[in-house]
Measured scan of single mutants.
Amino acid sequence: DIIVVALYDYEAIHHEDLSFQKGDQMVVLEESGEWWKARSLATRKEGYIPSNYVARVDS
């Protein structure tokens, strides 16, 4: 799995977006363009995230 960590807070604009806080970790489910589908490890919610707001966690 690709794990990313939030670099900034993000408040969902559309209902399919995923809100998150700086430091939150998410599993990337699908990478396509600038918006990635991800699942929050904390809340288990899924939605689209702006890929420029996150960084990959080296395992």
Rank of each mutant, 00 (worst) to 15 (best):
A6G: 06
V27K: 08
G47L: 01
V28A: 03
K22F: 06
A38L: 04
Y8V: 08
D9F: 04
R44V: 06
P50G: 03
D24R: 01
Y10G: 01
L29P: 00
S51F: 10
D1H: 14
T43F: 03
A38P: 00
F20I: 03
S59R: 10
I13R: 13
D58E: 12
L29G: 02
W35V: 07
V28K: 02
Y8D: 06
I2K: 12
L18E: 00
V28D: 00
D58K: 10
S51D: 03
Y8F: 12
S32P: 05
S51K: 15
W35E: 03
A12Y: 02
I2T: 11
D24G: 02
Y8M: 11
A55I: 13
D9M: 05
E34R: 13
D9C: 07
A42W: 06
W36Q: 03
S40L: 15
A12I: 03
W35A: 05
A38N: 01
A38V: 14
D9S: 10
Y48T: 06
E30M: 10
P50S: 05
V27P: 00
S19Y: 04
E30R: 08
K45E: 12
K45M: 12
D17R: 09
Y10V: 02
E30N: 11
Y10W: 10
E16G: 15
S19Q: 06
P50H: 08
S59G: 14
M26K: 00
W36H: 04
D24I: 02
D58H: 12
V28P: 01
M26D: 00
Y48C: 12
E11F: 11
I3E: 03
T43Y: 04
G23D: 05
L41N: 05
S40D: 08
Y8L: 09
Q21H: 13
A6C: 06
E31G: 13
S32F: 13
G47C: 01
N52L: 09
W36M: 13
V5E: 07
A42F: 08
A6D: 00
Y10D: 00
I49W: 01
G47S: 01
S32Y: 14
Q25G: 04
E46S: 09
E11A: 11
D24V: 04
N52A: 14
E34I: 13
P50C: 10
Q21W: 08
E30D: 14
L7K: 06
A12W: 02
S59M: 13
Q21D: 06
H15Y: 11
V5S: 04
D58A: 11
Y10C: 05
S40Q: 10
L7A: 03
E31P: 09
E46C: 11
E31M: 15
D1A: 13
S40F: 06
S19T: 08
W36E: 01
L7R: 05
L41A: 05
T43N: 09
I3L: 12
G23Y: 05
L41K: 06
W35M: 10
V5C: 08
D9I: 04
A6M: 04
A55E: 13
L41V: 10
K22R: 10
E16K: 10
D1C: 15
I3Q: 05
D24E: 14
Y8E: 07
D58G: 12
R39C: 08
R44W: 14
K37Q: 07
W35I: 08
A38K: 01
V57H: 07
S40K: 11
W36V: 08
P50M: 07
A38W: 02
Y53T: 04
G33V: 04
E16D: 15
R56P: 09
W36S: 06
D58Y: 10
D24Q: 07
S32A: 11
D24K: 01
S51P: 11
I2L: 11
V27W: 10
R56G: 06
Q21S: 13
S19D: 06
V54P: 01
A6P: 00
D9P: 07
K45H: 09
N52S: 15
I13N: 09
E34G: 10
S40A: 09
A42Q: 10
N52Y: 10
V27I: 14
Y48F: 12
V54T: 04
E30K: 09
S51E: 04
V54Y: 02
F20K: 00
T43L: 04
S40Y: 04
G23C: 08
G33Y: 05
E16Q: 12
N52C: 14
Q21N: 11
Q25Y: 15
V54G: 01
G47P: 00
L18Q: 01
Y53H: 09
S40N: 13
I3D: 02
E34L: 14
Q25A: 09
I49G: 00
G23L: 03
D1E: 14
F20L: 03
K22Q: 08
L18A: 00
A38R: 00
I2D: 08
S19L: 02
E11G: 06
Y8S: 06
I13P: 07
Q25E: 11
Q25W: 15
V57L: 14
E11T: 14
A55K: 13
V27C: 09
E11R: 11
H14L: 07
Y8G: 04
F20N: 00
L41Q: 06
A42I: 12
D58I: 12
E31R: 14
H15M: 13
